[in-house]
Design a protein around this nucleic acid. Structure first.
Lengths: 239, 239
DNA sequence: TTATATTTGTGCGTATGTATA
DNA sequence: CTATACATACGCACAAATATA
Protein backbone atom coordinates (compact mmCIF):
# COMPACT_ATOMS: atom_id res chain seq x y z
CA UNK A 1 0.00 0.00 0.00
CA UNK A 2 3.01 2.29 -0.34
CA UNK A 3 2.85 3.92 -3.74
CA UNK A 4 4.00 7.49 -4.28
CA UNK A 5 0.97 8.53 -6.26
CA UNK A 6 0.02 11.62 -4.32
CA UNK A 7 -3.09 10.05 -2.86
CA UNK A 8 -3.25 9.70 0.90
CA UNK A 9 -3.71 6.23 2.35
CA UNK A 10 -6.83 7.11 4.29
CA UNK A 11 -8.29 8.29 0.98
CA UNK A 12 -7.61 4.93 -0.65
CA UNK A 13 -8.96 3.09 2.36
CA UNK A 14 -12.10 5.24 2.25
CA UNK A 15 -12.51 4.28 -1.37
CA UNK A 16 -11.97 0.63 -0.58
CA UNK A 17 -14.78 0.85 1.92
CA UNK A 18 -16.95 2.61 -0.65
CA UNK A 19 -16.33 -0.32 -2.95
CA UNK A 20 -17.36 -2.71 -0.19
CA UNK A 21 -20.60 -0.77 0.04
CA UNK A 22 -21.13 -0.99 -3.72
CA UNK A 23 -20.41 -4.69 -3.72
CA UNK A 24 -22.51 -5.78 -0.77
CA UNK A 25 -25.40 -3.39 -1.17
CA UNK A 26 -26.97 -4.19 2.17
CA UNK A 27 -28.78 -1.30 3.73
CA UNK A 28 -27.92 -0.97 7.37
CA UNK A 29 -25.15 -3.49 6.77
CA UNK A 30 -22.38 -3.78 9.32
CA UNK A 31 -18.84 -2.99 8.24
CA UNK A 32 -15.95 -5.12 9.42
CA UNK A 33 -14.41 -3.74 12.62
CA UNK A 34 -11.75 -1.05 12.42
CA UNK A 35 -9.11 -3.59 13.40
CA UNK A 36 -10.24 -5.97 10.66
CA UNK A 37 -10.27 -3.20 8.05
CA UNK A 38 -6.82 -2.07 9.18
CA UNK A 39 -5.49 -5.57 8.61
CA UNK A 40 -7.28 -5.99 5.29
CA UNK A 41 -5.90 -2.75 3.87
CA UNK A 42 -2.55 -3.10 5.61
CA UNK A 43 -2.74 0.21 7.46
CA UNK A 44 -2.94 1.46 11.01
CA UNK A 45 -6.29 1.62 12.75
CA UNK A 46 -6.02 5.40 12.98
CA UNK A 47 -5.86 5.52 9.21
CA UNK A 48 -9.01 3.43 8.97
CA UNK A 49 -10.68 5.75 11.45
CA UNK A 50 -9.80 8.76 9.37
CA UNK A 51 -11.24 7.05 6.29
CA UNK A 52 -14.45 6.23 8.15
CA UNK A 53 -14.65 9.81 9.44
CA UNK A 54 -14.51 11.08 5.86
CA UNK A 55 -17.23 8.64 4.79
CA UNK A 56 -19.38 9.58 7.77
CA UNK A 57 -18.95 13.27 6.91
CA UNK A 58 -20.42 12.62 3.50
CA UNK A 59 -23.20 10.51 4.97
CA UNK A 60 -22.34 7.11 3.53
CA UNK A 61 -21.82 5.45 6.91
CA UNK A 62 -22.53 6.13 10.56
CA UNK A 63 -20.77 4.69 13.59
CA UNK A 64 -22.03 3.74 17.04
CA UNK A 65 -19.58 3.41 19.86
CA UNK A 66 -19.20 -0.16 21.03
CA UNK A 67 -21.42 -1.47 18.26
CA UNK A 68 -19.74 -0.79 14.97
CA UNK A 69 -20.03 1.15 11.74
CA UNK A 70 -23.01 0.78 9.39
CA UNK A 71 -23.75 1.60 5.78
CA UNK A 72 -26.57 3.88 4.87
CA UNK A 73 -28.87 3.10 2.02
CA UNK A 74 -27.99 4.44 -1.42
CA UNK A 75 -30.68 5.54 -3.82
CA UNK A 76 -31.06 2.67 -6.23
CA UNK A 77 -30.83 2.98 -9.98
CA UNK A 78 -33.55 1.92 -12.31
CA UNK A 79 -32.68 -1.01 -14.55
CA UNK A 80 -32.90 -0.61 -18.27
CA UNK A 81 -32.84 -4.06 -19.87
CA UNK A 82 -31.34 -4.15 -23.34
CA UNK A 83 -31.84 -7.14 -25.55
CA UNK A 84 -32.69 -7.67 -29.17
CA UNK A 85 -36.18 -6.22 -28.69
CA UNK A 86 -35.77 -3.29 -26.39
CA UNK A 87 -38.74 -0.97 -25.95
CA UNK A 88 -38.38 1.93 -23.59
CA UNK A 89 -42.03 2.02 -22.55
CA UNK A 90 -42.29 -1.67 -21.77
CA UNK A 91 -39.00 -1.76 -19.90
CA UNK A 92 -39.57 1.10 -17.57
CA UNK A 93 -43.28 0.66 -16.99
CA UNK A 94 -42.55 -2.48 -14.99
CA UNK A 95 -40.53 -0.47 -12.48
CA UNK A 96 -42.11 2.97 -12.60
CA UNK A 97 -45.40 4.60 -13.40
CA UNK A 98 -46.35 6.67 -16.39
CA UNK A 99 -43.48 6.12 -18.77
CA UNK A 100 -43.52 8.91 -21.27
CA UNK A 101 -41.58 9.98 -24.31
CA UNK A 102 -41.78 13.61 -25.33
CA UNK A 103 -40.65 15.15 -28.59
CA UNK A 104 -38.12 17.92 -27.98
CA UNK A 105 -37.16 18.80 -31.50
CA UNK A 106 -37.39 17.37 -35.01
CA UNK A 107 -35.95 18.28 -38.37
CA UNK A 108 -35.27 16.88 -41.80
CA UNK A 109 -31.69 16.96 -42.94
CA UNK A 110 -29.42 15.35 -45.53
CA UNK A 111 -27.68 12.20 -44.30
CA UNK A 112 -23.98 12.62 -43.63
CA UNK A 113 -21.56 9.80 -44.39
CA UNK A 114 -21.98 8.10 -41.04
CA UNK A 115 -25.80 8.14 -40.95
CA UNK A 116 -26.03 7.13 -44.58
CA UNK A 117 -23.77 4.15 -44.01
CA UNK A 118 -25.69 3.08 -40.92
CA UNK A 119 -29.10 3.27 -42.60
CA UNK A 120 -28.00 2.00 -46.00
CA UNK A 121 -28.87 5.27 -47.78
CA UNK A 122 -27.06 7.52 -50.21
CA UNK A 123 -25.11 10.38 -48.72
CA UNK A 124 -27.39 13.41 -48.83
CA UNK A 125 -30.64 11.41 -48.73
CA UNK A 126 -33.28 13.07 -46.55
CA UNK A 127 -33.50 11.77 -42.99
CA UNK A 128 -35.66 12.67 -40.03
CA UNK A 129 -33.68 13.68 -37.00
CA UNK A 130 -35.73 13.40 -33.82
CA UNK A 131 -34.71 14.54 -30.36
CA UNK A 132 -36.76 12.90 -27.60
CA UNK A 133 -36.87 12.98 -23.81
CA UNK A 134 -37.85 9.97 -21.71
CA UNK A 135 -39.33 10.38 -18.28
CA UNK A 136 -40.49 7.96 -15.60
CA UNK A 137 -42.19 8.93 -12.35
CA UNK A 138 -41.61 12.56 -13.24
CA UNK A 139 -37.85 12.04 -13.40
CA UNK A 140 -36.07 12.55 -16.74
CA UNK A 141 -33.99 9.47 -17.49
CA UNK A 142 -32.60 9.94 -20.97
CA UNK A 143 -32.50 12.05 -24.08
CA UNK A 144 -32.16 10.42 -27.43
CA UNK A 145 -31.41 11.45 -30.99
CA UNK A 146 -32.80 9.16 -33.68
CA UNK A 147 -32.47 9.13 -37.44
CA UNK A 148 -35.00 7.61 -39.86
CA UNK A 149 -35.24 7.59 -43.62
CA UNK A 150 -37.81 10.19 -44.72
CA UNK A 151 -38.69 8.11 -47.75
CA UNK A 152 -39.55 5.05 -45.70
CA UNK A 153 -41.11 6.73 -42.65
CA UNK A 154 -42.57 10.03 -43.88
CA UNK A 155 -44.87 10.61 -40.89
CA UNK A 156 -42.72 9.23 -38.09
CA UNK A 157 -42.40 12.54 -36.27
CA UNK A 158 -46.15 13.20 -36.10
CA UNK A 159 -46.79 9.60 -35.04
CA UNK A 160 -44.21 9.86 -32.25
CA UNK A 161 -45.52 13.19 -31.05
CA UNK A 162 -48.96 11.64 -30.78
CA UNK A 163 -48.08 8.32 -29.15
CA UNK A 164 -44.86 9.11 -27.27
CA UNK A 165 -43.51 5.75 -28.36
CA UNK A 166 -41.17 4.73 -31.15
CA UNK A 167 -42.65 1.27 -31.48
CA UNK A 168 -46.18 2.65 -31.87
CA UNK A 169 -44.96 5.24 -34.35
CA UNK A 170 -43.34 2.46 -36.38
CA UNK A 171 -46.53 0.40 -36.19
CA UNK A 172 -48.31 3.30 -37.87
CA UNK A 173 -45.95 2.70 -40.79
CA UNK A 174 -46.79 -0.99 -40.87
CA UNK A 175 -43.64 -2.12 -39.09
CA UNK A 176 -44.70 -4.29 -36.17
CA UNK A 177 -41.41 -6.07 -35.51
CA UNK A 178 -37.83 -4.97 -35.39
CA UNK A 179 -34.75 -5.76 -33.35
CA UNK A 180 -31.52 -4.25 -32.17
CA UNK A 181 -28.43 -5.28 -34.04
CA UNK A 182 -25.64 -3.64 -32.12
CA UNK A 183 -25.18 -1.34 -29.16
CA UNK A 184 -22.04 0.63 -28.41
CA UNK A 185 -21.71 1.97 -24.89
CA UNK A 186 -19.53 4.86 -23.79
CA UNK A 187 -19.66 7.39 -20.96
CA UNK A 188 -19.01 11.14 -20.98
CA UNK A 189 -19.68 14.31 -19.10
CA UNK A 190 -23.14 15.62 -19.88
CA UNK A 191 -23.45 18.39 -22.48
CA UNK A 192 -25.04 21.66 -21.32
CA UNK A 193 -28.10 21.11 -23.52
CA UNK A 194 -28.66 17.58 -22.21
CA UNK A 195 -28.11 18.73 -18.64
CA UNK A 196 -30.99 21.16 -19.07
CA UNK A 197 -33.31 18.46 -20.38
CA UNK A 198 -32.25 15.87 -17.82
CA UNK A 199 -32.39 18.36 -14.95
CA UNK A 200 -28.99 17.27 -13.70
CA UNK A 201 -25.88 19.19 -12.59
CA UNK A 202 -23.38 20.44 -15.15
CA UNK A 203 -20.74 17.93 -14.02
CA UNK A 204 -23.04 14.89 -14.21
CA UNK A 205 -22.24 11.77 -16.22
CA UNK A 206 -24.21 10.26 -19.06
CA UNK A 207 -24.03 6.76 -20.46
CA UNK A 208 -24.05 7.06 -24.22
CA UNK A 209 -25.63 4.13 -26.05
CA UNK A 210 -25.44 4.13 -29.83
CA UNK A 211 -27.56 1.50 -31.46
CA UNK A 212 -28.91 0.32 -34.77
CA UNK A 213 -32.38 -1.16 -35.18
CA UNK A 214 -33.13 -3.38 -38.14
CA UNK A 215 -36.41 -4.69 -39.59
CA UNK A 216 -37.18 -8.42 -39.95
CA UNK A 217 -35.44 -8.45 -43.36
CA UNK A 218 -32.25 -7.20 -41.73
CA UNK A 219 -32.59 -3.75 -43.29
CA UNK A 220 -31.38 -0.98 -40.91
CA UNK A 221 -34.14 1.55 -40.28
CA UNK A 222 -33.30 3.45 -37.09
CA UNK A 223 -30.06 4.73 -35.79
CA UNK A 224 -30.09 6.32 -32.37
CA UNK A 225 -27.79 7.88 -29.82
CA UNK A 226 -29.24 7.88 -26.33
CA UNK A 227 -27.76 9.67 -23.32
CA UNK A 228 -28.84 8.16 -20.00
CA UNK A 229 -28.41 10.00 -16.69
CA UNK A 230 -25.84 7.69 -15.13
CA UNK A 231 -26.93 8.35 -11.55
CA UNK A 232 -30.48 7.24 -12.25
CA UNK A 233 -30.21 4.20 -14.43
CA UNK A 234 -28.08 1.20 -15.29
CA UNK A 235 -28.19 -0.82 -18.47
CA UNK A 236 -28.71 -4.56 -18.22
CA UNK A 237 -27.59 -6.72 -21.12
CA UNK A 238 -28.99 -10.23 -20.98
CA UNK A 239 -27.00 -12.61 -23.14
CA UNK B 1 -6.45 24.95 -3.57
CA UNK B 2 -6.18 23.96 0.09
CA UNK B 3 -8.73 21.22 0.63
CA UNK B 4 -8.22 18.43 3.13
CA UNK B 5 -9.21 15.69 0.73
CA UNK B 6 -6.18 13.46 0.98
CA UNK B 7 -4.99 14.23 -2.53
CA UNK B 8 -1.60 15.89 -2.80
CA UNK B 9 -1.43 19.21 -4.62
CA UNK B 10 1.10 18.06 -7.16
CA UNK B 11 -1.35 15.26 -7.99
CA UNK B 12 -4.18 17.68 -8.63
CA UNK B 13 -1.92 19.90 -10.71
CA UNK B 14 -0.85 16.85 -12.70
CA UNK B 15 -4.51 16.00 -13.29
CA UNK B 16 -5.19 19.55 -14.34
CA UNK B 17 -2.39 19.40 -16.88
CA UNK B 18 -3.76 16.08 -18.12
CA UNK B 19 -7.08 17.82 -18.72
CA UNK B 20 -5.30 20.55 -20.66
CA UNK B 21 -3.80 17.82 -22.81
CA UNK B 22 -7.22 16.26 -23.41
CA UNK B 23 -8.75 19.60 -24.39
CA UNK B 24 -6.10 20.77 -26.80
CA UNK B 25 -5.37 17.36 -28.27
CA UNK B 26 -2.53 18.58 -30.41
CA UNK B 27 0.40 16.26 -30.61
CA UNK B 28 3.60 18.03 -29.77
CA UNK B 29 1.68 20.92 -28.24
CA UNK B 30 3.51 23.29 -25.96
CA UNK B 31 2.44 23.57 -22.32
CA UNK B 32 2.25 26.95 -20.59
CA UNK B 33 5.45 27.79 -18.74
CA UNK B 34 5.98 26.47 -15.23
CA UNK B 35 5.49 29.96 -13.83
CA UNK B 36 2.22 30.36 -15.74
CA UNK B 37 0.98 26.96 -14.54
CA UNK B 38 1.98 27.81 -10.97
CA UNK B 39 -0.12 30.96 -11.12
CA UNK B 40 -3.04 29.26 -12.86
CA UNK B 41 -3.27 26.52 -10.23
CA UNK B 42 -2.30 28.78 -7.35
CA UNK B 43 0.69 26.74 -6.19
CA UNK B 44 4.43 27.12 -5.91
CA UNK B 45 6.54 26.46 -8.98
CA UNK B 46 8.20 23.52 -7.23
CA UNK B 47 4.80 21.87 -7.00
CA UNK B 48 4.27 22.33 -10.74
CA UNK B 49 7.68 20.82 -11.37
CA UNK B 50 6.81 17.77 -9.33
CA UNK B 51 3.55 17.36 -11.27
CA UNK B 52 5.37 17.59 -14.57
CA UNK B 53 7.96 15.10 -13.36
CA UNK B 54 5.18 12.61 -12.61
CA UNK B 55 3.62 13.13 -16.04
CA UNK B 56 7.00 12.78 -17.72
CA UNK B 57 7.58 9.53 -15.81
CA UNK B 58 4.42 8.07 -17.32
CA UNK B 59 5.27 9.39 -20.77
CA UNK B 60 2.51 11.93 -21.30
CA UNK B 61 4.87 14.90 -21.64
CA UNK B 62 8.55 15.53 -22.18
CA UNK B 63 10.58 18.55 -21.18
CA UNK B 64 13.41 20.25 -23.05
CA UNK B 65 15.65 22.60 -21.14
CA UNK B 66 15.30 26.18 -22.32
CA UNK B 67 12.44 25.33 -24.71
CA UNK B 68 9.52 24.13 -22.62
CA UNK B 69 7.36 21.08 -21.98
CA UNK B 70 5.42 19.30 -24.73
CA UNK B 71 2.47 16.90 -24.92
CA UNK B 72 2.60 13.54 -26.60
CA UNK B 73 -0.28 12.34 -28.71
CA UNK B 74 -3.22 10.49 -27.20
CA UNK B 75 -4.75 7.47 -28.91
CA UNK B 76 -8.49 7.14 -29.68
CA UNK B 77 -10.90 4.81 -27.94
CA UNK B 78 -10.44 1.08 -28.24
CA UNK B 79 -13.47 -1.12 -28.83
CA UNK B 80 -14.26 -3.80 -26.31
CA UNK B 81 -16.70 -6.32 -27.78
CA UNK B 82 -18.93 -8.03 -25.25
CA UNK B 83 -20.82 -11.14 -26.16
CA UNK B 84 -21.51 -14.46 -24.52
CA UNK B 85 -17.87 -15.49 -24.73
CA UNK B 86 -15.89 -12.40 -23.88
CA UNK B 87 -12.19 -12.78 -23.24
CA UNK B 88 -10.17 -9.70 -22.50
CA UNK B 89 -6.96 -10.98 -24.04
CA UNK B 90 -8.55 -12.06 -27.30
CA UNK B 91 -10.58 -8.91 -27.69
CA UNK B 92 -7.86 -6.41 -27.18
CA UNK B 93 -5.04 -8.28 -28.83
CA UNK B 94 -6.68 -7.70 -32.20
CA UNK B 95 -6.35 -3.96 -31.78
CA UNK B 96 -3.31 -3.53 -29.60
CA UNK B 97 -0.08 -5.29 -28.78
CA UNK B 98 0.85 -7.08 -25.63
CA UNK B 99 -2.42 -7.35 -23.78
CA UNK B 100 -1.64 -8.13 -20.19
CA UNK B 101 -3.46 -8.76 -16.96
CA UNK B 102 -1.63 -8.09 -13.74
CA UNK B 103 -2.67 -9.17 -10.27
CA UNK B 104 -2.98 -6.17 -7.96
CA UNK B 105 -4.32 -7.82 -4.85
CA UNK B 106 -5.93 -11.06 -3.76
CA UNK B 107 -7.55 -12.34 -0.61
CA UNK B 108 -9.84 -15.06 0.66
CA UNK B 109 -12.97 -13.90 2.41
CA UNK B 110 -16.37 -15.22 3.46
CA UNK B 111 -19.09 -14.67 0.86
CA UNK B 112 -21.60 -12.03 1.81
CA UNK B 113 -25.24 -12.40 0.85
CA UNK B 114 -24.82 -10.87 -2.59
CA UNK B 115 -21.77 -12.84 -3.66
CA UNK B 116 -23.17 -16.05 -2.23
CA UNK B 117 -26.41 -15.60 -4.16
CA UNK B 118 -24.56 -14.80 -7.38
CA UNK B 119 -22.27 -17.82 -7.14
CA UNK B 120 -24.80 -20.23 -5.69
CA UNK B 121 -22.88 -20.69 -2.43
CA UNK B 122 -23.84 -20.57 1.23
CA UNK B 123 -23.36 -17.23 2.97
CA UNK B 124 -19.96 -17.34 4.62
CA UNK B 125 -18.47 -19.84 2.18
CA UNK B 126 -14.84 -19.00 1.34
CA UNK B 127 -14.36 -17.06 -1.90
CA UNK B 128 -11.29 -15.74 -3.65
CA UNK B 129 -11.41 -12.03 -4.26
CA UNK B 130 -9.01 -10.95 -6.99
CA UNK B 131 -8.17 -7.39 -8.05
CA UNK B 132 -6.63 -7.22 -11.52
CA UNK B 133 -5.36 -4.52 -13.88
CA UNK B 134 -5.60 -4.80 -17.65
CA UNK B 135 -3.18 -3.01 -19.89
CA UNK B 136 -2.77 -2.75 -23.66
CA UNK B 137 0.08 -0.99 -25.41
CA UNK B 138 1.31 0.19 -22.04
CA UNK B 139 -1.98 2.01 -21.36
CA UNK B 140 -4.11 0.81 -18.43
CA UNK B 141 -7.64 0.17 -19.68
CA UNK B 142 -9.52 -1.36 -16.79
CA UNK B 143 -9.38 -2.66 -13.25
CA UNK B 144 -11.53 -5.55 -12.22
CA UNK B 145 -12.60 -7.28 -9.04
CA UNK B 146 -13.56 -10.95 -9.39
CA UNK B 147 -14.94 -13.52 -6.99
CA UNK B 148 -14.50 -17.30 -7.29
CA UNK B 149 -15.45 -20.17 -5.04
CA UNK B 150 -12.36 -21.34 -3.14
CA UNK B 151 -13.69 -24.89 -3.03
CA UNK B 152 -14.08 -25.10 -6.78
CA UNK B 153 -11.03 -23.04 -7.83
CA UNK B 154 -8.47 -23.43 -5.04
CA UNK B 155 -5.47 -22.28 -7.08
CA UNK B 156 -7.08 -19.62 -9.27
CA UNK B 157 -4.98 -16.77 -7.89
CA UNK B 158 -1.66 -18.45 -8.51
CA UNK B 159 -2.80 -19.53 -11.97
CA UNK B 160 -3.85 -15.99 -12.83
CA UNK B 161 -0.66 -14.50 -11.49
CA UNK B 162 1.28 -16.87 -13.72
CA UNK B 163 -0.72 -16.55 -16.93
CA UNK B 164 -2.25 -13.07 -16.64
CA UNK B 165 -5.46 -14.48 -18.08
CA UNK B 166 -8.68 -15.62 -16.44
CA UNK B 167 -9.49 -18.08 -19.20
CA UNK B 168 -6.09 -19.75 -18.89
CA UNK B 169 -6.38 -19.80 -15.11
CA UNK B 170 -9.74 -21.52 -15.47
CA UNK B 171 -8.30 -23.99 -17.97
CA UNK B 172 -5.83 -24.99 -15.29
CA UNK B 173 -8.86 -26.04 -13.24
CA UNK B 174 -10.25 -28.06 -16.14
CA UNK B 175 -12.81 -25.50 -17.22
CA UNK B 176 -12.30 -24.87 -20.93
CA UNK B 177 -15.65 -23.31 -21.76
CA UNK B 178 -17.84 -20.76 -20.07
CA UNK B 179 -20.05 -17.89 -21.06
CA UNK B 180 -21.41 -14.61 -19.82
CA UNK B 181 -24.94 -14.68 -18.56
CA UNK B 182 -25.66 -11.06 -17.77
CA UNK B 183 -23.89 -7.72 -17.84
CA UNK B 184 -25.03 -4.62 -16.00
CA UNK B 185 -23.53 -1.35 -17.14
CA UNK B 186 -23.31 1.85 -15.14
CA UNK B 187 -21.01 4.88 -15.16
CA UNK B 188 -19.45 6.78 -12.28
CA UNK B 189 -16.65 9.10 -11.38
CA UNK B 190 -13.45 7.14 -10.92
CA UNK B 191 -12.45 6.28 -7.38
CA UNK B 192 -9.06 7.56 -6.22
CA UNK B 193 -7.66 4.04 -5.96
CA UNK B 194 -8.79 3.17 -9.47
CA UNK B 195 -7.52 6.51 -10.76
CA UNK B 196 -4.09 5.61 -9.44
CA UNK B 197 -4.13 2.23 -11.18
CA UNK B 198 -5.59 3.57 -14.42
CA UNK B 199 -3.28 6.60 -14.43
CA UNK B 200 -6.17 8.94 -15.15
CA UNK B 201 -7.27 12.27 -13.65
CA UNK B 202 -9.26 12.35 -10.43
CA UNK B 203 -12.36 13.64 -12.26
CA UNK B 204 -12.27 10.94 -14.95
CA UNK B 205 -15.21 8.66 -15.70
CA UNK B 206 -15.33 4.88 -15.53
CA UNK B 207 -17.81 2.54 -17.14
CA UNK B 208 -18.72 -0.07 -14.52
CA UNK B 209 -19.64 -3.48 -15.92
CA UNK B 210 -20.88 -6.11 -13.49
CA UNK B 211 -21.16 -9.56 -14.97
CA UNK B 212 -21.74 -13.17 -14.13
CA UNK B 213 -19.95 -16.00 -15.93
CA UNK B 214 -21.44 -19.48 -15.90
CA UNK B 215 -20.03 -22.87 -16.87
CA UNK B 216 -21.56 -25.11 -19.58
CA UNK B 217 -23.94 -26.61 -17.01
CA UNK B 218 -25.29 -23.16 -16.23
CA UNK B 219 -23.60 -23.06 -12.83
CA UNK B 220 -22.33 -19.54 -11.94
CA UNK B 221 -18.60 -19.58 -11.26
CA UNK B 222 -17.28 -16.04 -11.59
CA UNK B 223 -18.77 -12.74 -10.57
CA UNK B 224 -16.86 -9.64 -11.55
CA UNK B 225 -17.04 -5.88 -11.40
CA UNK B 226 -14.87 -4.15 -14.00
CA UNK B 227 -14.15 -0.43 -14.21
CA UNK B 228 -13.15 0.75 -17.71
CA UNK B 229 -11.49 4.12 -18.33
CA UNK B 230 -14.29 5.75 -20.31
CA UNK B 231 -11.99 7.99 -22.32
CA UNK B 232 -10.02 5.04 -23.66
CA UNK B 233 -12.57 2.40 -24.44
CA UNK B 234 -16.15 1.80 -25.50
CA UNK B 235 -18.14 -1.39 -25.00
CA UNK B 236 -19.74 -3.01 -28.03
CA UNK B 237 -22.64 -5.39 -27.47
CA UNK B 238 -23.47 -7.50 -30.49
CA UNK B 239 -26.97 -8.93 -30.27
C1' DT C 1 -26.68 -10.23 37.82
C1' DT C 2 -21.39 -10.44 36.85
C1' DA C 3 -17.58 -11.24 33.97
C1' DT C 4 -15.34 -11.02 29.67
C1' DA C 5 -14.57 -10.06 24.92
C1' DT C 6 -15.39 -6.89 21.29
C1' DT C 7 -15.69 -2.42 19.40
C1' DT C 8 -15.26 2.47 19.17
C1' DG C 9 -13.10 6.81 21.14
C1' DT C 10 -8.98 9.29 22.80
C1' DG C 11 -4.20 10.76 23.90
C1' DC C 12 0.67 11.06 22.96
C1' DG C 13 5.19 10.40 20.83
C1' DT C 14 7.71 9.72 16.58
C1' DA C 15 8.87 9.45 11.75
C1' DT C 16 7.98 10.73 7.11
C1' DG C 17 5.76 13.33 3.26
C1' DT C 18 4.15 17.71 1.36
C1' DA C 19 4.39 22.66 0.34
C1' DT C 20 6.08 27.06 0.85
C1' DA C 21 9.51 30.70 1.39
C1' DC D 1 20.05 24.12 -0.98
C1' DT D 2 18.04 25.08 3.87
C1' DA D 3 14.45 26.16 7.15
C1' DT D 4 9.81 26.01 8.61
C1' DA D 5 4.96 24.60 9.05
C1' DC D 6 1.65 21.34 8.50
C1' DA D 7 -0.44 16.88 7.08
C1' DT D 8 0.00 12.02 7.07
C1' DA D 9 0.84 7.51 9.10
C1' DC D 10 2.27 4.60 12.67
C1' DG D 11 2.58 2.26 17.38
C1' DC D 12 1.15 1.79 21.88
C1' DA D 13 -1.91 2.44 25.70
C1' DC D 14 -6.19 3.00 27.87
C1' DA D 15 -11.10 4.57 28.53
C1' DA D 16 -16.01 4.02 27.38
C1' DA D 17 -19.93 1.71 25.33
C1' DT D 18 -21.85 -2.50 23.83
C1' DA D 19 -22.63 -7.53 23.22
C1' DT D 20 -22.59 -12.04 24.94
C1' DA D 21 -21.81 -16.03 27.84
Amino acid sequence: MNVDDGIARWRRVADGIRTLAAESDADGGLLPSEAALAERFGVNRHTVRRAIAALAAEGLVHTERGRGTFFRKLPGRLHYPIGTRTRFSENISRQAREPAGRLIQASVEPADARIAAALGLRIGAAVHRMETLHVADGMPLSVSTSWFSVERFPAIVAAYAETGSVSKALEAHGLVDYHRRETRVAAEHVSPADAAHLACPADAIVIVAESLNVDPEGQPMQRSRTRFAADRIELVFAT
